[in-house]
Design a protein around this nucleic acid. Structure first.
Length: 423
RNA sequence: GGAGAGUUGGCCGAGUGGUCGAAGGCGCACGCCUGGAAAGUGUGUAAACCUCAAAAGGGUUUCGAGAGUUCGAAUCUCUCACUCUCCGCCA
């Protein structure tokens, strides 16, 4: 969430920049400013009374010790009215603060200067395209290949759990595991420290990264223990740094994590979600960094470069998009999407999303750092990216590498799989 | 799941109603000492918010969380969460 300071000091800028996200913030911003001013007045008043109260209480103690009971009782009588007033003021303070927070969490992050305006995915800006486009005739979609070679059993998943929970089998399972290992090894080689996080998080964590309060419908909820299945490893990994004050020498903070990811994503069906295109449970390797504000965009570029190297090594045709305001997530300041081309479906599939959240998540997380020269802690920047999401990569590998002899495994994966072709 | 013990500052740990943001120690920072280092020694050592043009200064809050008793709560009462120990169960 945005800081009150950002809003108070830059009202017009906030409103202007949120227009890029097609968000009309005027009413909310003005309400926030008004409420914040009210909050300050109330707080000042309430604290003055409390100071008065504390003084009296102290004097009562002193008078009793001196044995001056009459004076003590006199002082004691003066507190009754004060007490009432303090109670009233602090309860209005609490309700004003709650209202303020309710409004603050409604404001999306400010988009970076370079974010193009636009309404939908159509308006995203293609910044790069690379790799060799496959030229295949009569290519089979991956769900048919999966059946033909007994790699993934979608029906069995339905029996065990429901739609969107495929069962990987044989070489399909091995290929999946190979991809996970490949991605983790690459991330570690790039200096990311590996973590294996819990797959469920509590409310505080879900709130910290912004899944709550608005998007609880997207997560599976375990009611009996009030825990949420993670939609991405970003949630537990970023929350490692909740309520943390980092010191200057701890940077760079780089973590990678493999996790299963769970998404309810209710309500969309059709050919776009067939096979592996959209699942309720899938595997992903995530990279996360915490950065000083002055470094965060340089780091975003590094993360983009890392993801690109993965796609290149897998020999997949790929394009990188800078998302337009309308297509960006609520929390992001700048996002690059990676899409790979899938030969049989003849469409681009999103396989990674790399974002800088600036201080938007850090503010909720209370993630701060202290510069080498001391001084007050200030909000850090957080970034993350998929490196990579597995199912669509799997889909593209299967579809693009199909040959009459079988499906060829990209060279970099062969040591991880132990085979070079699926027949 | 059953029984018991606990939760205090970066860490350890004292504190059972009043001047306690909190003794003491460790750690850390800076200084002194030293040829240099260790030891020793001195000083300092939280966060958030409000006030202030800013700094200084002042104020409020924070001793697991929330509520209560009281003029006054780390300290008393209640609720909840978590941790540890023992027993049971278990990959």
């Amino acid at each position: 969430m945005l800081t009150l300071k950002q809003i108070q000091d830059g009202r017009d800028e906030v409103i202007e920049r949120l227009k890029i996200k097609n968000f009309d913030a005027t009413a909310i911003v003005d309400q926030i400013i008004e409420l914040d001013n009210q909050r300050k007045l109330t707080q000042t008043e309430s604290e003055a009374l409390q100071a008065e109260m504390n003084k009296i209480s102290k004097s009562v103690g002193q008078l009793i010790q001196k044995g001056d009971i009459n004076a003590a009782n006199e002082a004691r009588e003066r507190t009754a009215g004060l007490k009432e007033q303090i109670k009233d003021l602090s309860s209005t303070l609490v309700s004003v603060e709650r209202e303020l927070l309710d409004l603050l969490v409604q404001l999306p992050n400010l988009p970076h200067q370079s974010v193009p305006s636009g309404k939908s995915a159509e308006d995203n800006l293609k910044v790069k395209e690379g790799g060799k486009m496959p030229e295949l005739k009569d290519a089979l979609p991956h769900w048919e290949l999966a059946k033909k070679y007994k790699l993934i059993d979608f029906e069995l998943g339905v029996k065990l759990t429901g739609a969107g929970f495929p069962v990987y089998k044989g070489k399909g399972a091995k290929l999946q595991r190979a991809l996970i290992n490949f991605f983790l090894e690459e991330a570690c080689a790039a200096g990311y420290e590996e973590v294996l996080p819990p797959l469920m998080v509590n409310e505080d964590s879900a709130y910290g990264t912004g899944q709550l309060p608005d998007k609880e419908g997207q997560m599976y909820h375990v009611g009996i223990d009030n825990l949420y299945l993670i939609p991405t490893a970003e949630v537990p990994v970023t929350n490692i740094y909740r309520d943390v004050i980092l010191s200057a020498e701890q940077f760079p903070v780089k973590n990678c994590a493999y996790s299963a990811c769970f998404r309810r994503e209710a309500g969309s069906y059709g050919k776009d979600v067939r096979g592996l295109n959209r699942l309720h449970q899938f595997d992903k390797v995530e990279i996360v960094q915490v950065a000083k504000p002055e470094d965060s965009y340089k780091i975003l570029d590094q993360m983009v470069a890392h993801v690109q190297s993965l796609v290149d090594k897998l020999e997949l045709p790929c394009r990188i998009l800078r998302l337009c305001g309308g297509d960006m997530s609520f929390t992001s300041a700048l996002t690059y999407d990676f899409e790979v081309f899938s030969a049989a479906q003849e469409r681009w599939l999103e396989v990674s999303s790399v974002s800088n959240f600036e201080s938007f998540q850090a503010n909720r997380l209370k993630l701060r750092y202290r510069d080498a020269d001391g001084g007050k802690p200030q909000l850090a920047h957080t970034l993350n990216g998929s490196a990579l999401a597995l199912p669509r990569i799997m889909a593209a590998i299967l579809e693009n590498n199909q040959t009459p002899e079988g499906i060829k495994i990209p060279r970099v994966l062969q040591p991880f799989c132990g085979f070079d072709i699926i027949k």
